[in-house]
């Protein structure tokens, strides 16, 4: 010990890194701490497995238009003549209207993805929300951050990057990765063009969701000074906002957007515009109405329980939510 104690102090003459490196350092260390548990890793794997599911659907779809598809041959052999006729009809349909069919399949799958993501987001964030800011406030580590070559905004950007990265695995990674995989497994390069608008829609909804949920996670974490309290704020926040939203929405539908999930959901509908898609498909594809009449309880495609939602009101609501969160969080972390 005495040898160690007598260690000499040496000056350091290296080059300092830029402020983005310092912000990234916060994100890197924060991610390491956030992902330390097994449960969160399990849920992230579960979230990522959506990629494989989507890619599988896209692959199966692409096999309908693939020449000499072994999958189609197998289905025709096992399903009999009826299935073979239906498959041939679908194949012809896909080949005749690829811009509708390809975009439709990708758009529908990405739309369905937006139903599972909120649940996964709530669970995953609940598993690490206390490690974002609450722990720093509880352990007074916030003083160390503030005394270094960082501003409060640098700290918040670093923390935001942690939660945004993890939520991107839920919202964005499945969209991007399944789109790439689906197109790589498709028989035709035209799939890239026809599915590209769906990718943009999926990314738009994902980005809005990631940004708004990240801000809310930071808010929940900054309000608590104990780990358990942060998780409680996060979980109770959703329940309370959901309940309030349901109650006040009876007075005015716009109040429903008090709940961020309601706002994200409606925004997603507005971006994916599934009703428009169905109506467009009905206009272009002659037997669309009949097809739906046979396969669903609805006599007309316009009766399908999908809406076009709206974009502006939920987006404004989410923007207000983010602004309020940032304001509160910045005050919380700069409180002395």
């Amino acid at each position: 010990m005495s040898d160690v104690w007598n260690a000499e102090y040496r000056r350091w003459h290296g080059e300092s890194t830029g402020v983005w490196s310092r912000r990234l350092a916060i994100a890197r260390y924060g991610l390491r701490l956030a992902l330390a548990g097994r449960v969160i890793r399990f849920f992230l794997v579960l979230a990522f497995s959506q990629t494989l599911l989507l890619a599988g659907v896209f692959f199966v779809f692409s096999q309908f238009v693939a020449p000499e598809s072994a999958l189609l041959d197998w289905l025709e052999e096992t399903g009999g003549e009826g299935v073979a006729t239906l498959l041939k009809a679908l194949t012809s349909w896909f080949l005749l209207y690829p811009e509708i069919c390809v975009d439709g399949v990708y758009r529908t799958m990405f739309f369905l993805l937006s139903f599972s993501c909120p649940f996964l987001s709530v669970v995953i964030v609940a598993l690490f929300v206390h490690r974002l800011i609450a722990n720093d406030l509880a352990s007074q580590a916030i003083v160390i951050y503030n005394s270094k070559a960082l501003t409060g905004w640098d700290y918040l950007l670093g923390k935001f990057a942690i939660v945004a990265t993890i939520l991107s695995v839920v919202w964005l990674l499945p969209v991007i990765a399944s789109w790439i995989l689906g197109n790589l497994l498709s028989p035709d390069w035209s799939f890239f063009w026809h599915s590209f608008p769906s990718l943009l829609r999926g990314l738009t909804v994902g980005l809005v969701a990631v940004v708004s949920l990240s801000c809310l996670a930071l808010l929940a974490s900054s309000l608590a000074r104990k780990s358990g309290a942060a998780v409680g704020f996060w979980a109770l926040g959703w329940l309370v906002l959901g309940a309030i939203s349901s109650a006040v929405a009876r007075a005015n539908q716009a109040f429903a957007y008090i709940s961020p999930f309601e706002a994200i959901s409606t925004f997603g509908e507005g971006v994916f515009r599934m009703r428009d898609f169905v109506m467009e498909a009905r206009g272009v594809l002659p037997f669309f109405d009949g097809f739906f009449a046979k396969t669903t309880e609805f006599s007309d495609a316009s009766q399908l329980p999908v809406s076009n939602g709206e974009i502006l009101a939920p987006l404004l609501s989410l923007a207000a939510c983010c602004a309020l969160s940032i304001l509160i969080v910045s005050r919380r972390v700069s409180e002395k």
Binding site: R131, D136, S139, Q140, V143, K148, A149
Partner: peptide
Amino acid sequence: RETRKRIGYAPEQDCHIPGM
């Protein structure tokens, strides 16, 4: 921010980051 690059501070209270 740039000035604090050249400054060190050891606060009175404990200020470690849990888990590190």
